[in-house]
Design a binder for these strands. Structure first.
Lengths: 344, 344
DNA sequence: TTGAAAGCGCTAACAA
DNA sequence: TTGTTAGCGCTTTCAA
């Protein structure tokens, strides 16, 4: 049963035709190259009978294309990214592309390593959630005419394609929703980061507070603080010190920690405090109370990313395809942001 | 800036040496092949100066090895799998391997497609969560001497390496925990499936009930039911009809649906009903009440998988490495399985 | 101590 | 209508 792999040469030899003929037939160029019906059929039948599979490596080496797209996110185990991964995978698969997922942990060095790794393998295109300091590396990819599209965040200083959402508008709207529900001391818990998406979210919150003449309470958790207990402590103290009656968590990760803090330290508040999280998660829907969330349009993002990549792949470098898309997030209103609703 | 890729030939030409010499030096064989210090240094320096990166495709084509490991799971967006993916990715990356993740959606056709796809690319090894009907395909990989290791579930009829957990023992123990906390009408909500892991879980539950002379309440949700509303309806009715005072959800997916049902239809019960879920999730920890969960040892599984794969890769086919590992899951006791504990 | 050259499996320009 | 052949970039045997 140890069926050694068959090559085009094997087929050619077995059928007494040349490799060229086989190659043409196998690549569907029989018609175009006017190979006789008879030979065509013979080749096809034989290839099928021995279960011939072309060696893609050789093919890629020859053509310079690998039919592989890399999707580099911050952390593939993050709900938002993993859901998106599935959507992207499905679209790519449909179009005959394979997708390589990887996590850069938001670290520049790892991002670089990964990009280099994939360049060595002539990956065809890159979909990247960039870590803060790889602007230069991205610029290089672009200048080397390699299709790249950024998402979630981008570098305003360089000319790239990207798909993002309007973070500030989304947060502004959601903050207003809290104001409309008569919360007064609305805190915004975020991470200290100058990445575009985080800055935009904070801006959205601040604008909303200013528009309503409310005091701004922003807690910036240190970006590199990996000690969850420390983060919990910070949040716990901040809630008490500022007497917050509502909290907007700027990332899913913070929401999880925040909810844990509330459950442990202020269990009585879980049903009165207004809570909104950025980025939805299946479990927020079934939480007690269900958590109101700013939800990014996953399907839309995935489709936009893939159509962009595929178009870039198709267009020659002399007429580059340009697409800088800003999508809108939606607010999914659940009980956690209504003071009066049944909260159980 | 459009720096075309450099090849070994370019280097050889620039330095007036042969490609062989360059290849030897670049592969660290300078000593072994007694290349002069001088030439060695010259080559190394030049390669560095032009930022030379070998073409891995060509390398793989030549050597037959791609340094790629495929990890095929049911759904990469599932918490368990995505967390594991990260662990595996990190280990592989350390060892100079890249990992390709993909989701087979538990469908045989997709599994086959993917396996074929990767065989064409001479992927070095496979880590697979097999869909129900691909026993034959797995057997073929094995008989072709391609390293494969299964996990989460396996095929008892074929001789493969695998890493699984003792599902029945884990569920048995967890069920006993419910009994110990004096729940009487303990339901087991699962999916109808004859896959090893699901059968083992159900067996564990049944054994525990029998050992305690308790009635068995098993609800098997149809395996292919994609309509969540239908599933909710089934669960809702089952809870009422059987008067359950505790529920064991056999998968994370069912837990999410189940919790939604309880919140919507029996909100008063959330704090009295005993609840245990199979597979933990960060959010269960912060739920109200926090949900007791059977937790699979992710790191251990990931490490075991990778050491197995790496060993298989190293061993020649005439002395195959064998490893069929059964790990233990742990029960993380949280409030949802205690009738008396403060449930908020 | 270094180089020439074959060949991994494939595509495609050119020849017949 | 089909075949010959160069070459993608690399490794490695054999020769010098």
């Amino acid at each position: 049963m140890k069926n050694k792999r068959h090559s085009i040469k094997d087929i050619a030899a077995a059928l007494n035709v040349s490799v060229t003929t086989v190659s043409f037939v196998l690549n569907g160029k029989a018609r175009e190259k006017r190979i006789s019906e008879e030979v065509t059929k013979k080749v096809l039948d034989y290839a099928k009978s021995i279960n011939y599979k072309p060696n893609q490596l050789a093919q890629s080496l020859r053509t310079g294309r690998s039919k592989i797209i890399v999707v580099m996110v911050e952390d593939i185990s993050n709900y938002f990214f993993s859901k998106l991964a599935r959507i992207i995978e499905d679209i790519a698969y449909d179009k005959g592309y394979k997708v390589l997922f990887c996590s850069n942990e938001n670290k520049d060095e790892r991002s670089r390593d990964l990009i280099n790794l994939f360049r060595e393998r002539q990956v065809d295109a890159y979909v990247i959630v960039p870590s803060p300091g790889i602007q230069q590396d991205i610029a290089e990819l672009v200048s080397d005419d390699i299709p790249v599209v950024l998402f979630d965040r981008y570098f305003p200083e360089i000319e790239t394609n990207y798909v993002i959402i309007d973070n500030s508008e989304a947060v502004h709207k959601a903050s207003q929703h809290l104001v409309d529900n008569s919360y007064k001391n609305i805190g915004f818990i975020t991470i200290s980061s100058s990445q575009t998406q985080m800055e935009a979210r904070q801006r959205g919150y601040r604008e909303a507070m200013q528009a309503n003449n409310l005091k701004e309470f922003v807690l910036e958790v240190p970006f590199y603080e990996k000690n969850i207990e420390k983060v919990k402590e910070l949040i716990k103290e901040y809630i008490a010190a500022q007497g917050l009656d509502a909290i907007f968590f700027a990332t899913n990760y913070l929401t999880q920690i925040g909810l844990e803090v509330i459950r442990e330290s202020y269990p009585e508040k879980i049903n009165e405090m207004g809570i909104i999280t950025f980025d939805d998660n299946d479990l927020f829907k079934i939480y007690f109370p269900p958590i109101t969330a700013v939800s990014q349009p996953l399907e839309e993002i995935g489709e936009e990313l893939m159509t962009t990549v595929l178009k870039m792949l198709k267009n020659a470098s002399d007429k580059p395809y340009k697409n800088q898309k800003i999508l809108s997030a939606s607010l999914i209103e659940r009980n956690s942001s209504f003071p009066n609703k049944s909260r159980a």
